[in-house]
Design a protein around this nucleic acid. Sequence first.
DNA 1: CCCCCATGTGAGAGTTGTTAACTTTCGCCG
DNA 2: CGGCGAAAGTTAACAACTCTCACATGGGGG
Lengths: 211, 211
Amino acid sequence: MAGPVVDPPAASAVTPKAGYHHGDLRAQLIAAVAELVESHGPDGFSVAEAARRAGVSSAAPYKHFKDRHEILRGVVAEAMDRLHAAMEAGAAAHPRGSLEAIAAVGLAYVDFARTGPGVFRLVFGLTEGHEDDPDLMAKGDQCFGVVQQAVADCLRLSPADPEVERRAYMLWSFVHGHSFLTIDMKHKVASTGTDDWTYLMAVAEAILRRP
Amino acid sequence: MAGPVVDPPAASAVTPKAGYHHGDLRAQLIAAVAELVESHGPDGFSVAEAARRAGVSSAAPYKHFKDRHEILRGVVAEAMDRLHAAMEAGAAAHPRGSLEAIAAVGLAYVDFARTGPGVFRLVFGLTEGHEDDPDLMAKGDQCFGVVQQAVADCLRLSPADPEVERRAYMLWSFVHGHSFLTIDMKHKVASTGTDDWTYLMAVAEAILRRP
DNA sequence: CCCCCATGTGAGAGTTGTTAACTTTCGCCG
DNA sequence: CGGCGAAAGTTAACAACTCTCACATGGGGG
């Protein structure tokens, strides 16, 4: 790729290092890359620029990551952890088995997408050399697990019940689709006619209170 | 980027040119890029490699596209046309206003995603310099229009009716989400427990046969 | 206290994006 | 029919980027 990747080649939110040994480079690189992905799209980042932002030479990142793809994977892993935590928190904020708990999980998902559309798309668009990174797959399953558990609680069934899996999948498609559409079409917002919470409650009700 | 972008640096499905003047370079570049995106991810393509595949010098593409982003946009535009056509065809294959017509539109969508996951993701992940390319937005609206029309027919209301918009959006979220999940988790397929058609019919019914 | 190795630096090879100046070919007009 | 201008290709060049290798550094465990 040619041309400078960013507008102000310096200046960043990640505070640079202190001495020769950085002490926290790996995390700072991930933060810097997340920022870049957010502002310039998934292929609008460069290892070099991330290094610059962290205040290290352009070769330093390769002590922590095999190649640029591995950095992306790092960003995704971190993001999925955050997503998982947010979903758990959403569920925990309401009585177990309530529809509210389910809607809250969905809302956490949508909020996650809206506050970091670039990273969100990265998370679900990663298909380079890591189609089946076991670590990422595990984290993905962990997230789905939250939905599954909430649905199981609501239906008073085991999480492994096929009926639970079916409805959890339905719910997730819905939330996932809404998240994507909502960040793709920032124009014509409020296509739902209502706010997210009401919308998600309606969906949860429709999917869970049926034969 | 470093390193060759593809495995066999030559050999391609797009047959190279004939004489000095290629005659069809623009289209062949788009085809080549679509192939690359499909096999190496959205940022796994390079203008140079696309040119190589089309049998021209690496500067030739710039006679047809301003920069690499414009090539991507070309790929997306072509893909959206195909998607739109497939959706229309799906709707046309069933009686107007039937649930089947709606399910068929959804199935076209899902099939499109499945047969070209890379391009599909590209279509809905394009956020570089063209967040609001009027041409692409128009094509997007065209696609949503098919859903909207099918829903309107089914409910016997005007496509502009807010109720139609609301349900069309719901339906689209669902289909969109299912499409994404289906290509993301190729593993644990058939999470729905049924085939796509049955699934989509159930969803259409649930969303359209309600207060 | 000292040495070791994880973590940094610098230079360099190879690739890419993009532009500029050129050349070739096609079709059209006098 | 000749030539000419625009469209479409080529080569050359530059800056940036990825990634490697040999070397430097310094903090923590023996």
